[in-house]
Design a binder for these strands. Structure first.
Lengths: 248, 248
DNA sequence: GCAAAAGTGTTCCGACTACACCCATGC
DNA sequence: GCATGGGTGTAGTCGGAACACTTTTGC
């Protein structure tokens, strides 16, 4: 940022005018419904103009003294109670004209959106309905038309989610402490599609990596042989940091 | 995190006040000096407060009607003439207090920085010195202390550059139309380090991928057998899009 | 017993590693 | 000739893909 020209007093002439911004944060919140084998995105019904009544990503405008990440967490906590979650910055959308308010409300204020990407555990994420506006999980493959450029944002978030799953241990942030290898496999299958890997090969590969430790206890779920419960061991994973890792 | 001082006429009561932002764009511009085997970052000397006289990333504040990407390209074109270049958004830094101007210049305006990452071809990038402020390429391993949080930004950009090289065909955006496999190998070696791969294996792997076509002409550079010149064929590469690709 | 789910083992094959070696040019 | 850099070939090994098979539970 070189120029520190301000535009109010405008004592210098012919200097291009800087834009003034409001900054919004929009969250793409994913969750995996293991009962129905669906990948879900959280949407809320807008209560304000513009796009009143449209579905949109949960978002907010950044307040004074608030960091971007704080704002992202605030949106999350206003919409749900979640225990296990993963959150990271996604992308910043800032072209002029992406928000209809820029036209109407006079002073040329621009609206910029910093999007965040989150993954929460479905079973532990209880939505907070405020009775006024709608809030709902939608299957990522069947989204309605969303407000602003939010369809685009979701697509990018989806892309990022798949990458994250393949190359980093995000899955364990969203699984319970102890989980079966089938749980893990199911999570991957829902996000990446049916054909990403054979179960038995997936299993062998993951165990060979060495950061899953058998807790000794078993989980019996209806018919079939009980499965061993595993735990993610962050210490044993540490030396794999930054190394090319493929979970596929 | 706690919103405090507000000064504009707050007409609604008990509503937390939104922050007003100026938005800056800062570019991490990399280039590879093949003569000296160094990876370089472009720095400029600041001419304004704050951090007057410090080295910093080339940046600017976003003007009215200008998109973020436009601003990023504008910064580039003000600092250099470049033919082949690659540019993409890096990350958005927006915590309160990251810019000293927030304290001084009165109205609680926040300064947010959207960073962009660029790779340009060294031989074709001629810097534009305006005679007033400094501008220079610095080896990425020997950077001075930079203004703002720019050292952090460079580190993240460096990380991204390495990933991009390994998993995407960025290299070809920055090589001339026709290049030898040694040129390509050297580019990778400088960025990723000496030990990333054996030359002959690198060569075999790249050719097997099938998107490099031999132009038929040779390049003779001093002693030694002349090298074949290759061209990147985007069409033949197309079907590899999104597929896991490793150039390492 | 049988179905269902977990877990093991085996074979095939392609890809990466680490070299050794051959080729074409300048001087 | 010989140094220099470009280019080819190969043997060993590792890991993934596919799939058959065994084990432990519920009913």
């Amino acid at each position: 940022m070189s120029g520190n020209l301000q535009k109010k007093p405008a004592h210098s002439v012919a200097e291009p005018t800087l834009a003034d911004f409001k900054v919004g944060v929009d969250n793409v919140i994913f969750s995996v419904d293991t009962d129905q084998n669906r990948l879900l995105v959280l949407l809320v019904m807008r209560r304000d103009r513009p796009f009143l009544g449209s579905w949109s990503l949960p978002g907010t405008l950044v307040r004074q003294g608030e960091s971007l990440e704080d704002a992202a967490y605030r949106v999350l906590s206003e919409k749900m109670r979640a225990n296990n979650l993963y959150l990271e910055q996604l992308y910043t959308f800032g072209g002029p004209g992406r928000d209809p308010r820029e036209a109407e409300d006079s002073f040329g204020v621009r609206y910029l959106s910093v999007s965040y990407f989150a993954l929460v555990r479905f079973a532990e994420a209880s939505l907070i309905a405020d009775g006024v506006s709608g809030i709902a999980w939608y299957p990522v493959e069947q989204l309605p038309t969303l407000a602003f450029d939010h369809n685009e944002v979701v697509q990018y978030g989806y892309y990022r989610l798949r990458n994250k799953l393949e190359y980093s241990p995000v899955a364990f942030e969203v699984l319970p402490e102890a989980f079966t290898l089938s749980d893990l496999y199911q999570l991957y299958t829902i996000v990446l599609g049916e054909n990403f890997s054979d179960y038995s090969n997936f299993r062998t590969r993951l165990l060979k990596l060495g950061f899953l430790t058998d807790t000794g206890t078993k989980a019996s779920r209806g018919a079939g042989r009980p499965a061993s419960l595993y735990r993610f061991d962050a210490d044993k994973f540490a030396h794999l940091k930054d190394k090319p890792l493929v979970f596929v």
